[in-house]
Design a protein around this nucleic acid. Structure first.
Lengths: 157, 157
DNA sequence: CGGTATCCACATGGATACTG
DNA sequence: CAGTATCCATGTGGATACCG
């Protein structure tokens, strides 16, 4: 099954729709970015993004519901609320960085600021890309979609 | 500037909002997936996604406008229209695969089908992640956001 | 501080019918 | 085949006021 031959029926078991259920709304990625940048409080995020309060409340609630953010009283001031990334939330970093890098390359044409760097040497991270199981960088031409069943049948031979 | 210390002002030059302008709508990623899966024609995409015709027309138009898809008469039948990924569109693959893998891990809990494989050995590609400039796989703890100016000042010392 | 409540505008989305 | 046109429902988003 080649990559450029259309699939008769696709998407039957693709996780993308499910992922988009959680992250598909316009503000979700921006709220997530705020979280990655260390913003934890409602007012902080609201003033930084300029998002309407009711929408922010709604989105934060949804992100908490799906387990991307965690809502806790602030340790140093129990009256305040703190939103933190869960492990599931942190796991969205490659997606977010990939999209940001794409925007840098094709939309703005210039590097974003602040930069995501490796703490060890303060060097900017590499472009996010697709690698083979043994670490070779792959181009679109090197890739193909295959049905799992077909691969298993082939492996069984 | 540590990763867990909040940034006073963020997002001033981040390309993410611009990227989301192009890809932020619910259907955009799914239409893109259809394109990656080799679907080229309006009716094909419409029946595969179950999207309303007017919305699909609108989204296809927008994706063409921003240069992610290219709209051409079909080579073998000039009466038909064909949508193909541009280079800019293909460049969204890491983002899409990263999001799909995240969904597999956290939302559906099972691998998607069809699988993206390396043509050479038909092995599924590796999980998309963030690497350092010299190819070390980085965890969230290894990362930090820094202002470009600060990095340049430091380098000049 | 971290929300709700309200109100309103517009965008998104779906269904269906029609067209070149 | 690849859309438009139309209609309608709901969702998203913004502004503002209010609240515990």
């Amino acid at each position: 099954m080649g990559l450029r031959e259309p699939l008769a029926q696709i998407a039957a078991e693709c996780s993308l729709p499910k992922a988009l259920e959680a992250m598909g709304e316009r503000w979700s990625f921006l709220i997530l970015r705020a979280a990655f940048n260390g913003l934890k409080h409602f007012e902080e995020i609201q003033s930084n993004l300029g998002i309407a309060r009711n929408i922010l409340a709604n989105r934060l609630g949804r992100l908490v519901d799906v387990g991307i953010l965690d809502r806790q009283p602030c340790p140093e001031d129990r009256r305040k609320i703190e939103y933190r990334l869960t492990e599931k939330g942190v796991d969205l970093l490659p997606t977010m960085i990939a999209l940001r890098q794409w925007g840098e390359k094709w939309e703005t044409g210039c590097p974003s600021n602040p930069v995501l760097v490796d703490k060890r040497d303060l060097e900017p991270v590499a472009d996010v890309r697709v690698f083979s199981h043994d670490g070779r960088a792959l181009e679109w031409e090197d890739l193909s979609f295959h049905w799992r069943e077909e691969l298993e049948a082939r492996a069984a031979e």
